[in-house]
Amino acid sequence: MEITKTKRREKGYFGVLVKHPLALIAHIILLLAVIAAVFANFFPADALEQDLMSSLLPPTLHADSFPGAASSFPHILGTDSLGRDLTARILLAIRISLLVSFFSVVIAMIVGVTLGLVSGYIGGAVDNVIMRIVDALMSLPFVVLAIAVVAAIGPGLINVALVLGFTGWVTFAKLVRGEVLRIREYSFIEAANSIGCSSIRILIKHILPQTMGIILVNATLTMGQMIVSEATLSFLGLGVPAPTPTLGGILADAQQTFFAAWWIMVFPGLILMAIILSINIIGDFLRDYFDTSEAGSR
């Protein structure tokens, strides 16, 4: 995907987007996922209501016909081993997954960008300390670290978001630091110094805006990672505890009954894949859109 500066200026974001069908589809899928997450409550079936009479029903377009059925709405994607409607569970799971990943990315971004800016601009001992912490965190597998922390502070929606956030900031810090080191060599930074700007003003007004593109791109890519990590944690039983559904949690349950009920694994799996793929494609699109080589160039 090659997006020239002129095109971007003239056509704006959507003008460029319609010329890139793959990215457009990815945007639509993500939009649908967000709509699903927001309106999950309005789905006629209840995600939590158990009905052992209807356990492991295959996908169908017909409503349960036996007397005393919990739902009069058809189990479009079937039911799980406890007879809960899979469609309703997946919709709710999308909401939880998006929420957890979104907030963990926000936390990671705030921590990472701040430390990256400070590290790159101040340099010296401060830079050394921050970067050694980054190196240490990077040398540990992300999931192993998250497992250790969740095991210590216990599972739960907020805890998972915090754990993911506080382990995911390192890439932000490293990227932003690198950008700061590059940007501070431009003479408009020296100019800002010479007109008497304070360090904080230079960081916020002159350096940060140049790094926004790369931050946004990394945020998108990290969000995809966060959804996978959350699913991994839930799959391992360390994520958001039952009965709240998450995509990883549903998949974990599904493996026990996979040979009897394939649908419990296939549908959430496909949706997880579609969302992550879309987010990654959007990330790539944003990277081209905000091609950072522009800063200070002729």
């Binding site: 408009f188 100019a191 010479s194 805006p209 160039s297």
Partner: peptide
């Protein structure tokens, strides 16, 4: 900072001495 009000600088490269996003 107060002194810098009275002592200013003009730079060599007019391409990199202006913040491209302002």
């Amino acid at each position: 900072r107060t002194l810098r009000r009275e002592m200013q600088m003009i730079f060599q490269d007019p391409y990199s001495s202006l913040n491209p996003r302002m």
